[in-house]
Measured scan of single mutants.
Amino acid sequence: KTVHVDGVEYRFNNPEEADKFVKRLVKEKNGNVEVRGDTYHVE
């Protein structure tokens, strides 16, 4: 899984860790998540 945040790319081998990371980011930023294939885009 890959997570894109503000143009920075984070790669996770463990999908659960990627999910936790995304949830935390969305809370912090009050942002939205767009999923494209295996990539999460957080804005």
Rank of each mutant, 00 (worst) to 15 (best):
K1A: 13
K1L: 14
K1N: 10
K1P: 12
K1E: 05
T2I: 14
T2L: 08
T2D: 01
T2Y: 07
T2W: 05
T2V: 14
V3N: 00
V3C: 14
V3R: 00
V3S: 00
V3E: 01
V3W: 03
V3L: 04
V3D: 00
H4N: 11
H4V: 15
V5P: 00
V5F: 11
V5R: 00
V5L: 05
D6V: 01
D6S: 02
D6Y: 04
D6P: 00
G7C: 14
G7P: 00
G7H: 02
G7Y: 01
G7W: 00
G7R: 00
G7T: 00
G7M: 00
G7L: 01
V8W: 03
V8H: 08
V8N: 03
V8G: 01
V8S: 03
V8P: 00
V8D: 02
V8Q: 07
E9P: 04
E9T: 11
E9I: 13
E9L: 10
E9Y: 09
E9G: 01
E9Q: 06
E9V: 13
Y10M: 04
Y10K: 00
Y10L: 02
Y10W: 02
R11N: 07
R11D: 03
R11E: 06
R11K: 12
R11W: 13
F12C: 04
F12Y: 00
F12M: 00
F12L: 00
F12D: 01
F12G: 02
N13I: 05
N13D: 13
N13H: 07
N13V: 07
N13Y: 05
N13W: 05
N14I: 03
N14T: 14
N14W: 02
N14R: 02
N14L: 04
N14K: 03
N14C: 11
N14A: 02
N14Y: 02
N14D: 13
P15E: 14
P15D: 11
P15W: 13
P15N: 08
P15F: 09
P15A: 13
E16L: 04
E16F: 06
E16S: 05
E16D: 10
E16W: 06
E16R: 03
E17V: 01
A18H: 01
A18C: 11
A18L: 09
A18V: 03
D19T: 04
D19H: 07
D19S: 04
D19I: 14
D19P: 02
D19E: 13
D19C: 15
K20N: 13
K20A: 15
K20R: 12
K20W: 08
K20E: 15
F21R: 00
F21K: 00
F21T: 02
F21I: 01
F21S: 01
F21Q: 02
F21D: 03
F21E: 03
F21M: 01
V22Q: 03
V22P: 01
V22C: 11
V22L: 12
V22I: 13
V22R: 04
V22D: 06
V22W: 05
K23Q: 13
K23S: 12
K23C: 15
K23W: 04
K23M: 10
R24L: 14
R24K: 14
R24A: 14
R24M: 13
L25F: 07
L25G: 02
L25N: 03
V26M: 12
V26Y: 10
V26A: 10
V26F: 11
V26P: 04
V26L: 14
V26W: 11
K27M: 11
K27V: 05
K27W: 08
K27S: 11
K27L: 11
K27E: 13
K27Q: 13
K27N: 10
E28W: 10
E28S: 07
E28R: 03
E28P: 03
E28D: 11
E28C: 15
E28V: 05
E28T: 05
K29M: 13
K29D: 06
K29L: 15
N30T: 05
N30W: 12
N30I: 05
N30P: 06
N30F: 09
N30L: 10
G31M: 14
G31D: 08
G31K: 06
G31H: 09
G31Y: 15
G31F: 14
G31T: 10
N32M: 13
N32V: 14
N32P: 04
N32L: 11
N32G: 07
N32W: 15
N32D: 05
N32F: 12
N32T: 14
N32S: 12
N32H: 13
N32I: 14
N32C: 15
V33I: 08
V33L: 10
V33A: 05
V33H: 03
V33N: 06
V33C: 07
E34N: 10
E34S: 12
E34D: 09
E34Y: 13
E34G: 06
E34W: 11
E34P: 04
V35G: 06
V35N: 07
V35T: 06
V35M: 10
V35I: 13
V35C: 13
V35S: 05
V35Y: 11
R36V: 12
R36K: 11
R36T: 09
R36H: 09
R36P: 07
R36Y: 10
R36I: 12
R36W: 08
G37L: 09
G37Q: 07
G37W: 14
G37K: 05
D38I: 03
D38R: 00
D38P: 06
D38W: 02
D38Q: 05
D38H: 04
D38T: 03
D38A: 02
D38V: 02
D38K: 02
T39C: 14
T39G: 12
T39V: 11
T39R: 06
T39D: 11
T39Y: 07
T39W: 08
T39P: 07
Y40Q: 09
Y40S: 09
H41N: 09
H41I: 14
H41V: 11
H41W: 15
H41L: 12
H41F: 15
H41K: 08
H41A: 08
H41M: 11
H41E: 09
V42S: 06
V42G: 10
V42C: 00
V42I: 12
V42E: 08
E43N: 12
E43R: 09
E43T: 15
E43F: 15
E43D: 11
E43I: 15
E43H: 13
